[in-house]
Computed example of a mutant assay.
Amino acid sequence: MTLRWRTARWVLLAAVAIVAVAAVSTYLTAPRPGGRLDPEATGPDGAHALVSLLRQHGVEVITAETIGDVQRAATPDSLVVAAQTLYLSDDDQLHQLASAPGDLLLIEPVGKTREALAPKIKQGKASSFGGGAPDCDLPEATRSGDVELGLTNTFEPVDDAQVTRCYEGAVVRYQDGGRTVTVVGTGDFMVNGGLLKAGNAALAMNLAGARSRVIWYAPQHPEGESPGTTGISDLLPKQVRWVVLWLALAVALLAVASARRLGPLVAESLPVVVRASETVEGRGRLYRSRRARDRAADALRSATVMRLLPRLGLTTGAAPQAIVAAVAARGGGDPGSVGHTLFGPPPGTDSDLVVLAHQLDDIERQVAQS
């Protein structure tokens, strides 16, 4: 009884360890959903990859879920990255974002957002596929080189304002007092699915990593609402969860206790001993009754080839051409005749099948005697 309990205990511990490892692996590798440019989303439109790269290069990235988080985290030496989403449109929200200290990087803004946060620029020509060379003296762009921006908006200065335009206006920058405002017409080069194209990753890191402290603001829900969603498990009382957990544990213990235990191997005598010759004759009669000359020939050829391979120094994966060449070299026969015998078409009559069997025996004898 003690030995049985020890065995069951180790089995139970192994099962618990396997379940724990599987649960942790599933959690770590599961994709994290989210909207466009969400710093936590690992989908093609998320920005988790860029945020991770910035942190690996020593940049402090703070993800802000509300405009209040931006106000508390922003400093004169920080950079606020504001990505346009469906939930960045409130007037008070834009006013507070405009008054936040530090530099500003504005990603694909709509007209209302652009007028509130970047009033010195206006919409340029119609949206088009942008990229290529920067054609400007902006250090972040010149270090990045050619990029593939995809479909992007372009911008032009308002009233001859001093604005640096790169990539035909898809990336613009100007100074507003002591604040640097940078606007990009698209975020495709910053999302997870676009970083690997051309110099996109370099441009994204150069723009977003211009400061050692970055506040990433891409609101994914209306102000004041929790980003989390309520699932079925959240609606269950805690007592029910514990009951389910104990029931699962009880079922696991019952399964371990009731499992069939493998003992030592027991040798048992066969009820009937069938001679090998009788098995061969029975199979041959079965093939003959069904006129399965193709199956019979294939069986004969396969058995012959399998016996020849060790003698020829070949493996089971050898090509038919290599087998034919080796047999012809060992037996001195014609390669065409050998190939036809070993890998040719099935015989048409029973007499042809008998002739094929004799030819296979001759080839095997010649190889064995050579």
Rank of each mutant, 00 (worst) to 15 (best):
D92L: 14
Q84L: 10
L138C: 07
A116W: 05
L50Y: 04
D91Q: 13
A319L: 15
G348H: 11
S127M: 15
A201R: 12
R55I: 11
T66K: 01
T75D: 07
Q56D: 10
R365K: 15
D160G: 08
S52D: 13
D69R: 00
V274P: 00
L106F: 05
L360G: 03
D160V: 03
L94R: 04
V70L: 06
D160C: 00
L207H: 03
V266T: 15
D69M: 03
V11F: 11
S127H: 10
R330S: 12
Q220S: 10
A326G: 01
L265V: 13
Q220L: 11
L360P: 03
A328P: 05
D234N: 13
V274G: 01
T29M: 09
R295G: 00
G185L: 09
Q84H: 05
V81D: 05
L314Q: 05
P109G: 03
A133V: 11
A100K: 06
T341C: 05
R143Q: 14
G348D: 11
S351W: 13
R143P: 01
G132P: 03
A368Y: 04
I18D: 01
G231K: 14
V181G: 02
Y174Q: 04
N192P: 06
H340S: 15
E156G: 07
G124H: 01
T180P: 01
C166W: 06
T316Q: 13
L53D: 13
R72G: 00
R165E: 12
V181N: 01
T316H: 11
Q71I: 05
A292L: 10
L309G: 07
S258D: 09
S269N: 09
V181M: 01
S99G: 09
T152S: 15
R293I: 11
E278A: 14
G336C: 05
A98S: 13
V327Q: 05
R290P: 00
R6K: 11
K120I: 00
S370H: 12
L138D: 03
S370P: 01
E281A: 14
V21R: 04
G231Q: 10
N206A: 15
L151V: 15
D234Y: 07
L236F: 04
Q96D: 10
L314R: 06
E281T: 12
T142P: 00
P76K: 09
A357D: 13
S25G: 10
G124S: 04
S78L: 03
Q220I: 14
Q359W: 03
A319N: 07
G209R: 07
P346F: 02
G224T: 08
C136E: 07
V16M: 12
T164P: 00
V240G: 04
L207V: 06
A299V: 13
A218H: 02
L3D: 14
A118N: 00
G194I: 10
K112N: 11
G339E: 10
P134M: 10
P310K: 08
A22H: 02
